[in-house]
Design a protein around this nucleic acid. Structure first.
Lengths: 341, 341
DNA sequence: TAAATTTGCTAAATCGATTTAGTATACTAT
DNA sequence: ATAGTATACTAAATCGATTTAGCAAATTTA
């Protein structure tokens, strides 16, 4: 926008009135501030005629409110986060806020950088899927009384708002389902991470395995592995001497790589190998045989987050007690496990 | 952030110097402005000690630069747009910008709203996948000399920057491939839209069909149809009396619905029906048989967009001539068509 | 030794809105 | 006639940075 932008003062000058009056009118305070209906009409007409667009920066600087929520997800191109982002955006727009977002790529440095960028931008609140090691940064936000909510994972040691899944329950019912369908050597493919959600998913697996009196088969992949490397590792895991007869993938992208590995090895689902994965995805629904998944209630989670966060922004007193929400995933049974005996 | 935020003036007061000095130091102009190294050190130390975070709003208000790019995509949860968004974000971050985004959901009203929101936010530039009927809004942006680039589709009547795919070429090579593989009744499933990319995709199809002396079979679905309704319509199309023996889906989501329809009808790919779809996707790679696609060069497109846009922002004189880029997609042959005779 | 230049820093205007604390006029009540 | 109140508006401070123009002291030059 090159030509010097139209400001409130320009309109004021043209109409020979004060900016105060126009500001009152634009903010719907015409009645309250006893602006005559005629002047109001005149001003509104002029504004429309000139195509005046208020400067949100000046507004925000003065009022201290930006109506922007900073969203930090692990990776916007991951279908799970993309869908959550979409729901969040929808909810937030309805309530007059906008979203500024960044992907953390699971790197603390990137995360620190992004948080600082967001603080400088004076966002009204933060929605964060924290990376490992981000406690310090998140703690700084708490100390500065920023409004924030963690999502997907949280820090047990920090008193923050959060909305997460009952991850342990999720893998528990998944593995239990595999047990019921007669699998005996149930593998667990996860990423090498101490993030709360991954620990919980492992715990659910371990619990179900223990209850069934089975032996655990666990394979950890690095989040930073290239897809091909990850697929190779899974092929090895699924093809070694004492190999599993079923496998539970702890995330959607592990599931996707896993299907590729299984296809490469020409293993038949569900007879050679039973499969369940965390998170739903078009692929899992349409793959043949279709893949049984642990589905997260994305809409519900997103709404809950926004409710908690926006309520806290609107009523800062409510920030005194943090709110926690743990939602249950559901088992969507498809055809990737043997039929019940 | 409840407790009154630390401002430059607070630091100035504490050190008993002027804000000017601190501003110079923070902006790396210490040498240029001949600030003594000792004072510089003292200031930097204080800033670190107090954890001062500059207020970007005030900065932007004064300088007229926000370093924010407004991104409007059709739907962030669509894998194509999510991947583009991810690439754009990466490119833009490297160069000191951030992204504020919204999905248009293919609605002009939403789009108008979002554009206005972005203008109020004083974004430095716009990246837009325009909806049908958004010419007026885009034109307003041009008149106000906003920096913008259209993407995925464009308005032939408007002189704007754009980066798009050679869509016509894409469907042409796709359909030609089906012809070469011996299909005679090649269907085209598209959305009911006059957006440039959809028209071009249709044109490529029509050209290839004509060259091959075949009869066209076209089915248009509404963008606003619910998934199930869309799938029903496709089932009808693929199952009517004079039904196609191959089908080209004009977008990734049509392809996804299409696979569902084909599966429901228990048609065998590639013998009962040959399949090609626009856009790559995990599903198309892993579906069995794997699906041949027309793949867009996402990384290249994203980089091109950012280059053009940021260059124009940096050197507004370059805005005098708009830049257009048309990239060629590639045919990724998989197993969803009959083997060559 | 005086003039010119350099050094090291600052006062104050500015960006564009909101908001507080008025003011001037007209009307009403006593 | 006078005080009180309602009406219809506005002046100026403010948010927190950047930036222009300039000042006083120290140093160099002629």
């Amino acid at each position: 926008m090159k030509p010097k932008r139209l400001a409130l003062s320009d309109i004021a000058r043209q109409l020979n009135i004060s900016t105060t009056t126009i500001s009152f009118i634009m903010n719907g305070k015409a009645e309250e501030k006893r602006i005559s209906p005629e002047l109001k009409e005149k001003v509104l007409k002029k504004i429309k005629e000139l195509g005046y667009v208020p400067n949100q920066l000046a507004k925000s600087l003065r009022t201290g409110k930006t109506n922007i929520i900073g969203l930090i997800v692990e990776d916007i191109s991951n279908s799970f986060f993309a869908r959550v982002a979409h729901m969040i955006e929808e909810e937030v727009n309805k309530r007059g806020y906008k979203i500024i977002y960044c992907s953390s790529e699971n790197s603390v440095e990137k995360m620190t950088e992004v948080i600082n960028m967001f603080r400088e931008s004076q966002v009204d609140g933060f929605i964060i899927t924290p990376t490992e090691g981000a406690e310090t940064e998140v703690n700084k936000l708490i100390k500065d009384r920023a409004h924030l909510i963690l999502f997907d994972r949280y820090f047990p040691g920090l008193d923050t708002n959060y909305v997460v899944l009952d991850n342990s329950y999720g893998s528990y019912i998944g593995v239990k389902h595999l047990v019921e369908r007669g699998y005996k050597k149930i593998g667990f493919v996860t990423i090498d991470s101490d993030q709360s959600q991954m620990i919980d998913r492992y715990n659910g697996y371990a619990k179900a395995i223990k209850e069934a009196g089975l032996k655990p088969y666990v394979k950890r992949i690095s989040f930073f592995d290239e897809p091909n490397a990850a697929i190779r590792k899974m092929e090895t895991f699924l093809n070694k001497k004492d190999k599993p007869d079923a496998v539970f993938f702890a995330t959607n992208y592990l599931g996707i790589y896993g299907l590729e590995a299984i296809t490469n090895l020409q293993l038949k689902i569900p007879d050679d190998i039973g499969v369940i994965t965390f998170d739903d995805h078009d692929l899992f629904r349409l793959f043949r045989p279709s893949i049984t998944v642990i589905a997260q209630p994305i809409a519900e989670m997103s709404k809950a987050m926004i409710n908690i966060l926006l309520d806290e922004i609107a009523t800062p007193a409510n920030a005194l007690k943090t709110r926690h929400m743990v939602l249950r995933p559901s088992l969507v049974v498809r055809n990737s496990t043997k039929q019940p005996c």
